[in-house]
Structures are given as C-alpha cells and as structure tokens.
Nucleic acid binder design. Structure first.
Lengths: 151, 151
DNA sequence: TTAAAAGTCTATTAGTACTATAGACTTTAT
DNA sequence: ATAAAGTCTATAGTACTAATAGACTTTTAA
C-alpha cells in the first residue's frame, strides 16, 4: 500500500507551493529551489512538475523570474487528485476502481469476498484523499506549529 | 496504492479456506484445488501458502489426504495481518509506519504536512484491515448471497 | 514395501515498473 | 546577446514482482 517516490515528491512539492504563498497569493518557485529545499533529484522533479502542469494543476512561466505556481486555489486541489495523476488509481485491486475498472476474474464479482473488502478500502482512501485539500494540509501544519510554540 | 498479486492471491486463498469450512470446522484443501478454483499459478501459490504457514496463519499436513487449513478460527485472522505478511507495512510512507518506521528526511517530522496526511491514511487502512476478520468476510459474502436470492 | 499423493525448500528467470539521468531545445527578461 | 528558467524525449540502471523449475521429504494405503 505504498506511495511511490514520484507521488511522494509530487505531494511534497505541491504542499510547498501551497504553503509558501503570502496571504493567498500563489507562490512562484523554481524547480531548483523546490529540489534543494525538499532534497528531490532536480531532473526527476522536473518531470513530475511537468506532468502536474499538463494535468492542469500547475501553471509555469519560462525565462528569467519564471517558475511554478498552483493553477487553482489550494482549497480546490485535493491530495487524491495529485496522487491519481502521478500514481494512478487509488483502488487496491482493479475490480473496485472507479477510474480504471477491470474485471478481476473471479467467478462472481457480486459475491467475491475480496472485492467487497477492497471496495471498503478504496472508498475510505477516496474519502480521506479527495476530502483533503492542500489548504487543509497547510492549515493543519500551521496549527501544529502554533501548538508546539505555546507548548 | 495497489495490492500485489502475491497479496491478492494470498487473501483469496485464505478467504476460500475460511469459507469452505463446514460448520466451524476448518476446511482442509490442497494447493492444487485452490489453484484451480481461483485460477492462481500453482507454484506461485505454493510459495505464498508456505509463507503464510511459516507466519503461523496456516497449518498443513503432508502426504495422501493432506492439505492446508487455517491455524486459528477465522474470527481471529485479520486481513491486515495477511497483507502485512505478504506485502509488508500498510503505511503509504515509511515515516508513518508502525511496523517499519524510518525517517523520511524532512527537516521537521512533527510539522511535515505530508506526514500528517499520510498518518491519517495509515490509520484508516489499519482500522479497516485489522478490524476485518476472515469471518467478517465470509459472513458478508453469505449475506449478499442471500439478498441476491430473495431479490 | 512401495507407489502415489501431498507439502517443502531453494534457486533462477522473465518481465515490468520505478527511479533517475542526459541532453538538446524553447521562451523570456534584461 | 546572454543567462535564467521551463520543455520534451529518450534511455539507463535497478529493484521488485511474478512465475517457473526441480529435487526433496512426509504420509497413507494398496
């Protein structure tokens, strides 16, 4: 049930872009800076951000002073969306996938025990990941920071 | 977030063993029969069942009339346990794993947004998978069967 | 007592997906 | 014109997954 490095790096980068924006303005950050701050191989990160851009989650600007920024408000980008783009379907087995259904080959899908159980897992994953936006993440982080300061 | 074939096959076999038992008695079934009924490559299944046996979830008997059966009541074997044995930790990233923790390398773990979000995911997975026993699965299957009959 | 049925164990291969790197190209600001 | 930045495609390396192979041990029963 592991997240790939691609997925992990992509999420880290998106969270960083969401967190760095001063007062709602989307931050513009260069690949190199994200790569250095998050210790992600630059060339690999480049591919990941490009994928996210082509999927419509990021905008970019070339040339001097360019970089990446979120294409939408952080509140409108969910973790589930990012993960699906980079790692594919959330479903543990294809026969319960919403975005990439395929029959699993059991004699009767409707009464397949594995399918019933994995359906629950998929739904729970989707609920959490589609229900958590980048804004939710940054809010939670700053909350934890504050509670650590005062503690 | 995909389940490996190893994990899938192992779960299918365990569910079959739990389902086939007549009135609480654990069913004794041969590799070959499981392999045929579930369409799992026999030699691969062999390895999987051996792993599950060495982990204490199955018992086996060699020779004529032998085969595999559950080592414990179906109510005491959780899907989470089976998956951990065959596929490793449930956690999407190692820094939130209970059974195989490793630092993820972020500057501050306590305030890492990714870690906070993935912690939720891990907990939810663990809640479902550790909270669902083979008995729960068989009960649910027979419930669905009945409702399909009467429908 | 021996043949057949069944599991055990270890090694090896084939395939695939993940991770990362390379390098040539385009756009933009100054 | 030049330097800073993103774009795009190809490819290499590696690790893991899935599957196969084969020789061995235990047990039952004819």
């Amino acid at each position: 049930m592991r997240l790939s490095k691609r997925g992990e790096y992509g999420l880290r980068a998106m969270i960083m872009l969401a967190t760095s924006g001063p007062g709602g303005h989307p931050a513009v950050i260069q690949i190199r800076e994200i790569s250095e701050r998050e210790k992600i191989p630059a060339k690999f990160l480049e591919q990941i951000l490009l994928t996210l851009k082509n999927a419509g989650l990021l905008h970019s600007k070339m040339g001097v002073g360019g970089g990446y920024h979120l294409a939408k408000p952080a509140s409108e980008i969910s973790l589930g969306h990012i993960i699906r783009i980079l790692d594919g379907p959330l479903a543990p087995v294809k026969c319960v996938s919403q975005m990439a259904y395929e029959p699993c080959g059991c004699p009767d899908e409707e009464t397949c025990g594995l399918r019933l159980a994995m359906g629950d897992v998929r739904n729970s994953l989707a609920k959490i990941l589609d229900g958590t936006s980048l804004e939710d993440v940054t809010r939670r982080v700053s909350k934890v920071r504050k509670s650590l300061k005062s503690g």
